[in-house]
């Protein structure tokens, strides 16, 4: 017997000997199929008393030590990004993926930043990503891997800027799973799904919280209120 069969048969043996009324194997298989098929939601924190969802999202993003801004269009988003870079004395050089929505960014004449595309080699100061969704419950951005938004951009730069469309904001994690299932199909996901809440941090030295561990030191979240 190989290890796989040994482990599985040991599990079955332990379960059978301990549960006098272990349901038939057909019933058990059905229970598993049913749960995966219907993926019940369980207890969901009630956010109805907490202001408007967008206000909650902003509050949670800021509580996570990220900065937040909201713009009316992708054209405005470009201006906001350039303004942010100037404010933080960062070079006007940005790495980003091939997300189509980036094409709508209109950089100011003359001072357009230098744009690089593709994954990061660790030498970039600033990377820009577009989130697939945002979770208001915790102020979390949901990013999926692919050529549109390579995962290395989320972790290697010192400054990470994430755009999220207002229409993609979800109340809770469960709504976000729904959107992922719609995007990738049942039981399927992109290679990586990153749920990001604030810049990286560590409390491993005397439990003092310090921002900027191995991931970005700064995270700027921009909500774009433009119909897609």
């Amino acid at each position: 017997m190989n290890s796989r069969d040994k482990i599985l048969s040991n599990i079955r043996q332990s379960l059978t000997s301990s549960q006098k009324n272990l349901s038939s194997s057909d019933e058990r298989k059905q229970a598993v199929r049913r749960r995966i098929g219907s993926h019940p939601r369980g207890i969901i924190p009630d956010l109805s008393s907490k202001h408007k969802l967008l206000t909650l999202f902003q509050e949670k993003v800021e509580a996570s030590e990220a900065s937040y801004s909201k713009v009316k269009s992708y054209v405005d988003a470009a201006a906001e990004i350039q303004q942010y870079l100037r404010q933080h004395n960062l070079p006007q050089r940005i790495r980003m993926g091939k997300d189509k929505r980036f094409k709508k960014l209109k950089w100011g004449k003359g001072d357009s930043p230098q744009i690089q595309t593709g994954p990061s080699d660790g030498k970039d100061f600033v990377c820009l990503s577009h989130a697939q969704g945002g979770i208001c419950e915790t102020g979390t951005l949901v990013l999926t891997s692919g050529p549109d938004n390579p995962t290395s951009l989320n972790f290697l730069p010192e400054t990470h800027i994430i755009l999220v469309n207002k229409k993609d904001l979800q109340e809770n994690y469960e709504d976000s799973w729904k959107a992922l299932r719609r995007g990738f199909g049942r039981g399927k996901l992109s290679r990586t799904v990153n749920m990001i809440t604030g810049p990286s941090r560590s409390a491993d030295i005397e439990q003092t919280l310090i921002l900027g561990a191995h991931g970005p030191l700064r995270l700027h979240v921009i909500v774009v209120d433009e119909a897609k």
Partner: peptide, 15 residues
């Protein structure tokens, strides 16, 4: 800060 789901290796078009 980070909750990350990893599913399989990189896909054909992933960079």
């Amino acid at each position: 800060v980070y909750s990350t789901l990893s599913t399989g290796p990189k896909r054909k078009t992933d960079e």
